[in-house]
Simulated assay, not measured.
Amino acid sequence: MIYELRVYRASVGNLPALLKRFETTTLNLWEKHGIRQVGFFTTMVGASNNDLTYLIAWESLAEREQRWTAFQSDPDWISARAETDRNGALTANITNQILQPTAFSKLS
């Protein structure tokens, strides 16, 4: 199992709308495409309280490529993203890392 760590820096004032999009739309589409979330977090103390951080679990890089591509090209996602971004993008910046657990990790 590998994990993808993604950090979305919301545009100023858009964190509530970004959280709502994940809760009401994105997660349903992820379920449709077999994408497994590990957890979602907002920043309580840190560089920015406009950050949404989350982890996704993948069996392999090949699975990630197949499922993420299917999600990104889903017409329902394209429509939902366009609708929620109609007054400007909800995110200012997105970073991601693919992580491999150590032998002593509880997630391995």
Rank of each mutant, 00 (worst) to 15 (best):
E65D: 12
S105E: 10
T95L: 12
A92F: 05
L61Q: 09
M44S: 10
E83Q: 15
V38T: 03
R67M: 07
E4Y: 02
L5N: 01
G13T: 02
F22Q: 00
V45C: 09
T24R: 03
S108I: 07
A89I: 07
F40Y: 10
A70F: 06
E4S: 01
I78P: 07
A57I: 08
R36C: 05
S108M: 06
Q100A: 14
Q100M: 13
W30N: 02
D85L: 08
P101V: 11
S48N: 11
T42A: 04
S108P: 00
T53Q: 08
W77T: 14
A10R: 00
K20A: 08
A47H: 13
L19P: 02
G46T: 13
G39A: 12
T69G: 05
Q37W: 08
N50D: 15
T53N: 09
L99G: 14
T102A: 14
V45A: 09
T26L: 04
Y54E: 12
E83S: 13
T53E: 04
L15T: 04
Q66E: 15
I2S: 05
E63G: 03
H33I: 01
I56E: 00
Y3H: 01
R6P: 02
Y8P: 03
G46K: 05
E83H: 12
S79P: 08
T25N: 09
S79L: 09
D51Q: 15
N87Q: 15
T102L: 15
I35E: 00
L5E: 00
L5Q: 04
W77H: 11
A92V: 11
W30I: 00
K106P: 05
Q72Y: 10
R9G: 00
T69V: 04
A17D: 05
T95Y: 09
R21M: 07
A89F: 06
R36E: 05
N14H: 03
S60Y: 05
E59D: 14
L90R: 09
I98E: 11
K20S: 10
D76Y: 03
L55P: 07
Y3K: 01
G39H: 09
T42N: 02
L15K: 00
W30H: 05
T95H: 10
N93K: 14
Y54T: 10
Q100N: 13
W68A: 15
N96R: 13
E23F: 03
A62T: 14
E31Y: 04
R9T: 01
A70G: 06
K32L: 08
Q100R: 13
L99Y: 11
V38Y: 06
Q97T: 15
A82S: 15
L29R: 00
P101F: 06
V45L: 14
A47G: 12
F104Q: 10
E83L: 11
S79Y: 09
R64S: 09
D76Q: 10
L52R: 03
E83M: 14
Q97L: 08
